[in-house]
C-alpha cells in the first residue's frame, strides 16, 4: 500500500468515528469480552468471531439519562469494513448493527436498535480511535455516544511483556448529566487480557477492559 493510502487510512480512522485491542471482530473462532463501567453508564459486550471479518454477539447497555434510566439487551452483528495492514501499523474500520429490547425506569418496555461505526489506528507506540454509536428505542429514547481517543506507549513492549499505554479519552454522550467527558487513563495489557483505569476531569472514574480467548 502506498504512503498516501496509509495517510488516508489514518485520517479516516481519526475522523470517521473503540480500539484495535477492543475491536468487536478478532480472529476466526475467537471469543471476546468487553466490559466498561462509568458512573452513569455501563457496557458489556460478548462476541464470537465467525471469521477475521465478521462476528456476532450479545450486549448489555445501561444508561442513566437526564429523564430516566434504561437497560438494553441487544443481539449484535459486527463487520470489519476495512483493514489496512502495514509493517509498522494497522488500521481498522468496523460497523455494528443490532436489535433487541429496552427496559426503562419510567416508560414501558420496548424494542431497541443499536448501530455503531468505529475506526482505529495503531502502531507500536501510537494509538488512536474514533467511535460513533447510537442506541434507539422509539422517539423518546435515543442515546448517542461519540468518542475519540489518542494514546502513546512509553516503551516498546515485547509480545510476552506487560504493555503500558497512556490514553486520553474524549466522550460526548447525549441525554447524560455530564455529556462531555475528558478522561486520562492508563491502559495495560498482558497476553489476552486488557485493563483500563481512568478518572475524568470532573472526577468520574472509568474502568474498562477486554479479553480474547
Amino acid at each position: 500500500m502506498s504512503r498516501s493510502y496509509s495517510i488516508c487510512a489514518y485520517v479516516a480512522a481519526l475522523f470517521l468515528c473503540s480500539s484495535a485491542y477492543a475491536n468487536p471482530v478478532s480472529f476466526k473462532g475467537g471469543y471476546g469480552v468487553m466490559p466498561a463501567y462509568n458512573k452513569d453508564w455501563t457496557d458489556l459486550q460478548l462476541n464470537y468471531s465467525l471469521s477475521n471479518r465478521q462476528s456476532v454477539g450479545v450486549s448489555g447497555f445501561y444508561r442513566e439519562g437526564l429523564n430516566s434510566s434504561s437497560t438494553f439487551g441487544i443481539g449484535q452483528y459486527n463487520y470489519l469494513l476495512a483493514r489496512w495492514n502495514e509493517l509498522d501499523s494497522q488500521t481498522n474500520v468496523t460497523f455494528s448493527l443490532g436489535g433487541g429490547g429496552r427496559h426503562d425506569s419510567r416508560r414501558d418496555d420496548a424494542l431497541a436498535g443499536y448501530a455503531a461505526v468505529e475506526a482505529d489506528y495503531e502502531a507500536r507506540r501510537v494509538y488512536s480511535q474514533v467511535l460513533a454509536e447510537t442506541l434507539q428505542s422509539g422517539a423518546a429514547v435515543q442515546y448517542e455516544k461519540y468518542r475519540g481517543r489518542v494514546g502513546f506507549a512509553p516503551y516498546n513492549a515485547s509480545f510476552d511483556e506487560l504493555n503500558t499505554w497512556v490514553v486520553l479519552q474524549l466522550d460526548y454522550m447525549t441525554e447524560m448529566h455530564d455529556p462531555l467527558r475528558i478522561t486520562p487513563m492508563a491502559r495495560l495489557f498482558y497476553n489476552n487480557v486488557a485493563f483500563e483505569l481512568g478518572v475524568s476531569l470532573q472526577g468520574i472514574p472509568f474502568v474498562g477492559g477486554a479479553a480474547h480467548f
Binding site: A20, F27, S89, Q90, R124, S158, N163
Partner: peptide, 29 residues
C-alpha cells in the same frame, strides 16, 4: 504485516499452538 500489538496477535499464537505439527510458536513484534 500489521502485527503491532501483542493483544491483537494472540490469535496467531493460539491458532498455531493448536496445530499438532507445531512444537513452539514465538512472536517478535
Amino acid at each position: 504485516k500489521g502485527m503491532v500489538c501483542s493483544f491483537c496477535a494472540q490469535g496467531i499464537k493460539k491458532t498455531f499452538s493448536a496445530q499438532k505439527e507445531v512444537e513452539k510458536v514465538a512472536v517478535d513484534l
